[in-house]
Design a binder for these strands. Sequence first.
DNA 1: GCTGTACTTTACCAATCAGCTAATAAACCG
DNA 2: CGGTTTATTAGCTGATTGGTAAAGTACAGC
Lengths: 122, 122
Amino acid sequence: MQDQLSRTFAALADPTRRAILARLRGGEATVTQIAEPFLGRMTLPGVTKHLKVLESAGLVTKGREAQWRPCTLNAEPLKDASAWMEEYRVHMEASLDRLGEYLKTVTAATTTTTTPHTGNDR
Amino acid sequence: MQDQLSRTFAALADPTRRAILARLRGGEATVTQIAEPFLGRMTLPGVTKHLKVLESAGLVTKGREAQWRPCTLNAEPLKDASAWMEEYRVHMEASLDRLGEYLKTVTAATTTTTTPHTGNDR
DNA sequence: GCTGTACTTTACCAATCAGCTAATAAACCG
DNA sequence: CGGTTTATTAGCTGATTGGTAAAGTACAGC
C-alpha cells in the first residue's frame, strides 16, 4: 500500500479492525483483552495480524509492559482522512437534492446541460 | 466485502479511485474522460474496474447515453463514513496532547493507572 | 452494411489479504 | 529449572485485488 491515506482507509475497511478501534476508545488494552470478543470467531494470531495492520497505519501504538503489549488508540491519521472527506461535505448534503436537480434539468431541457459527453469533441 | 461501510472505506483506499472521485466533483464525466489522466499509467479496462469498485460502493452512478456511460458522483455513502469518524473527533484533538497525558501519568505514579493488564486477574 | 468510437467482458497473472495451525519467544512465578 | 501466560512468527491455504491483452458488444454516421 502506497501512501498514508490509502493505508488509513484500508485499515478502516474491515469491521473487526473498526471494532478494535472502538474498543480502544475506552482506553488502553492488551492483545488478549482486545481479542476476547472475537475469540470463537477468530484466533489470537488473527487478531495480532489485524493489530499489525492498524499499527502500520499508525492508528494503534503498541507498548511493552513485561509480557503484555498495551495497545493505545492514535486517532491522528484520521485527521487526514477526515480532511479528505470534508471536501465532499457539500456533495453529501446535495445527494438528497438529486430529485430537485433532476427536475431542474428537465425544466431547462433546451440547454446542452443534459449531454454528458461535452468534452468529446476536443 | 461484507458491509456497506467496509465497502466504502475499501473503495477510498486507492489513490486512483480517490482521484476519480475528485474528478467527478467537477461534474459528470464519461469513462474515457475519467481515464484520460491515467492512460499511460493504466489501461482503459483498468479504469473500468476501478469504476466498478466505486459503483458497487455506491459512490458513483453510471448512466447510459448512447455509447457513453456518464458517471456522476454520489457522496451519500460518505455520510456514514464521516459519521463513523466523528466518534473519534475527540481523540484526534487529543492526539497531540499525548505528551501532556504522559506527564500526568508520571506525576501521579502511585495509582494503578499505568498497569495495562488490569483485566488480567479475572 | 462497413467503419470507427466507447466501453465491457473474458482470461490470465502476480501480489496481497484474511484466516488457520503449529512452533517460537519472552517474561513471570513457584 | 520447569511451567504458565502472553504474544508473535512461520508456513500454509483460499479468496480478493490490480493490472494486462485481446475479444466482444453497442451505438453512430457515412
